[in-house]
């Protein structure tokens, strides 16, 4: 089945009710708008402590037009699994009529890479029936920008003021190694690609993982108007790769595929880094050139590994 992702064909349905508590230019409501369009109104959202929870608004008002459950930080995997399992039982017993609503997590990198990792891993291993979205802003932005397992090398956070000395872990590939039915990466700058991936995941039963690269203005130190442009630069430099895997078969998506195949030259990594204040320390470092060259080599290796995996 081919899915039309033309903007003119996208549904009107809005999950986000305007006047949210999110910062200006925030990628979380941007992403959730696409999620709402792809999944429709019959969905249940689960959130762990994050900006997405802080954005809800003031009780008894909510900016989200779906039922939302705020659960504790480590429990996204277990909570969504429990809700999904309970719905299955209620439908089987005839307590509620089908079809089953889509259960999904909207969780940051903290609730996925670090604190939520075991719960998400266990749910993937059990093949529980829900979609886990990780909106990855590469830090604990909600609590004042502390480093996470998704923070890249050399990025300054409040807990790595001189720049992080370790690289990020590859969460999407870790999830792929759990062998679920569907794993994908997406970017806020490519809403049509994201929409297509959600629409595809919606029709699959079992555990599905979609990670959205979500540049954060206050956390990464760039103006609110640049959220999309920085997301686009991340993809065009190869710092963020777009791919999907159905039943373990990995496909690299455009424009990452053209980078991996060497058909297009990656955009300047230095240009991508220097527009983000979190790399200001690196930009002033005497060993800057060498450090950026090492980062570029890392990207090249990641793309080569993805390409090899896509040909398996």
């Amino acid at each position: 089945m081919s899915i039309s992702a033309k903007l003119t064909d996208m549904p009107d349905h809005e999950l986000i009710q305007r006047g949210t508590g999110a910062c200006a230019g925030c990628p979380s409501p941007m992403g959730l708008r696409i999620v709402g369009k792809a999944l429709g109104p019959d969905a249940i959202m689960v959130m762990t402590p994050s900006c997405a929870v802080a954005s809800i608004g003031m009780m008894p008002k909510s900016c989200y037009d779906v039922p939302v459950l705020n659960v504790c930080f480590a429990s996204a995997g277990a909570s969504a699994a429990g809700i999904s399992g309970a719905l299955d039982v209620q439908i089987a017993k005839g307590v509620i009529a089908g079809p089953k609503p889509v259960v999904f997590n909207w969780v940051g990198d903290g609730g996925t890479y670090d604190i939520g990792f075991q719960g998400v891993s266990a749910a993937a291993e059990r093949n529980d029936d829900f979609i886990h979205f990780c909106y990855n802003n590469e830090a604990y932005s909600n609590t004042g920008v502390q480093r996470s397992g998704a923070t890249p090398l050399h990025a300054a956070t409040t807990t790595t003021p001189a720049g992080k000395s370790e690289g990020k872990k590859s969460m999407p590939l870790l999830m792929l190694d759990h062998a679920p039915a569907y794993v994908a990466t997406a970017s806020i700058a490519y809403p049509q690609d994201f929409y297509k991936k959600i629409a595809k995941a919606k029709d699959i039963k079992g555990f599905r993982y979609i990670e959205l690269h979500a540049p954060c203005g206050p956390g990464w130190k760039f103006p609110a108007s640049e959220t999309v442009e920085i997301g686009r630069m991340a993809v065009k430099t190869g710092a963020w790769a777009l791919w999907e895997a159905e039943n373990g078969a990995l496909t690299i998506n455009a424009p990452t595929l053209q980078l991996a195949e060497g058909k297009t030259k990656p955009s300047s990594l230095e240009d991508y880094l220097k527009v983000q204040g979190r790399f200001a320390g690196l930009m002033k470092d005497a060993a800057k050139e060498q450090a950026i060259a090492v980062m570029a080599q890392g990207i090249e290796k990641e793309l080569a590994d993805l390409l090899a995996r896509s040909k398996r």
Partner: peptide, 18 residues
């Protein structure tokens, strides 16, 4: 539990931030 309902302006009249 108290339930929140979806509504415009849950975060306040956010146009004043501009």
């Amino acid at each position: 539990q108290p339930l929140a309902k979806p509504v415009y302006g849950a975060g306040g009249p956010t146009g004043t931030w501009r």
